[in-house]
C-alpha cells in the first residue's frame, strides 16, 4: 500500500511527466492556451495512459518475456499504443458521440505522444507489478493534466498582462514552463 502511495505521489508531483521528465511537451505548449481544451486533453491522456499501461504490461510480461524478446519492446509498444488509440476513437464515436466530439482532435494527437510511450517504458524499467503499473498509469495521467491545467491558467492570465514585445506568445510560455518546472523540482525531497 505504501508502495502504491509512493507511486501516486511520485508520478503526480515528484516525477511529473511534463515538468520533471519533460515528456509530452508538444501538447503542453500546443493545448495550454485555454483552460477548457486543456481539461479535455488531460482527460483523454488519463484515459489513454491507463489503458496503455495495462495493455503494454500484459504484452510485455505475457508475450515478450516468455519468448525472451525484450529488446523488441519499443516497437511493440508503439504498435500497441497506435492500435489502442485508434480503437478507442472508433469505439467512442459509436458509443459516446458527445464525448468523442469534445475530445475531438486530441485523441489522435495522443497516438504520437511520447509521454505514453515513456510511461510504458518506465513500467518496464521499474519492473512494476500489474497493479502498480495500473496505478502508475492513472497517476501519471493526473500529473500530466495538473501541469497542463496550471499552465493554461497562467497563460490565460498572461494574455491580459503586459509582456515585453520580444517575449509575446511562445517565448514567455517557455519561461513560465521553466519556472514551473523549477517549482516542481522542490517536490523531489518528498520521496527517496
Amino acid at each position: 500500500m505504501e508502495n502504491l502511495l509512493a507511486i501516486i505521489i511520485g508520478a503526480i508531483f515528484v516525477n511529473n511527466f511534463i515538468l520533471s521528465r519533460f515528456l509530452g511537451l508538444c501538447p503542453f505548449f500546443g493545448v495550454s492556451k485555454k483552460t477548457k481544451p486543456a481539461i479535455g486533453m488531460g482527460i483523454s491522456v488519463i484515459f489513454v495512459m491507463t489503458l496503455a499501461s495495462i495493455v503494454t504490461w500484459l504484452a510485455y510480461n505475457l508475450i515478450l518475456v516468455p519468448l525472451s524478446l525484450q529488446y523488441l519492446h519499443i516497437i511493440v509498444f508503439i504498435l500497441i499504443i497506435a492500435t489502442l488509440v485508434q480503437f478507442v476513437e472508433i469505439f467512442l464515436k459509436k458509443v459516446n458521440p458527445v464525448l468523442y466530439k469534445s475530445l475531438g482532435i486530441y485523441l489522435p494527437l495522443i497516438t504520437t505522444n511520447c509521454a505514453i510511450l515513456g510511461l510504458a517504458l518506465l513500467n518496464v524499467q521499474e519492473s512494476y507489478s500489474f497493479i502498480a503499473a495500473l496505478v502508475f498509469g492513472i497517476s501519471a495521467g493526473i500529473g500530466f493534466t495538473l501541469a497542463l491545467l496550471l499552465m493554461s491558467g497562467v497563460r490565460e492570465r498572461l494574455e491580459l498582462s503586459k509582456v515585453p514585445k520580444a517575449f509575446e506568445g511562445l517565448p514567455i510560455a517557455f519561461i513560465v514552463a521553466s519556472l514551473m518546472s523549477m517549482a516542481f523540482i522542490a517536490f523531489s525531497g518528498m520521496i527517496q
Binding site: I63, L64, V76, L79, Q86, F87, I90, F91, V95
Partner: peptide
C-alpha cells in the same frame, strides 16, 4: 511475433471499425 501482433491488431481494428461503424 511482430507479424503476428501486426496481423492481430490489424484484424482487430478492421473488425472493430465494422462492428462500431
Amino acid at each position: 511475433v511482430m507479424s503476428g501482433l501486426g496481423l492481430g491488431f490489424g484484424v482487430f481494428l478492421a473488425f472493430a471499425s465494422k462492428k462500431y461503424a
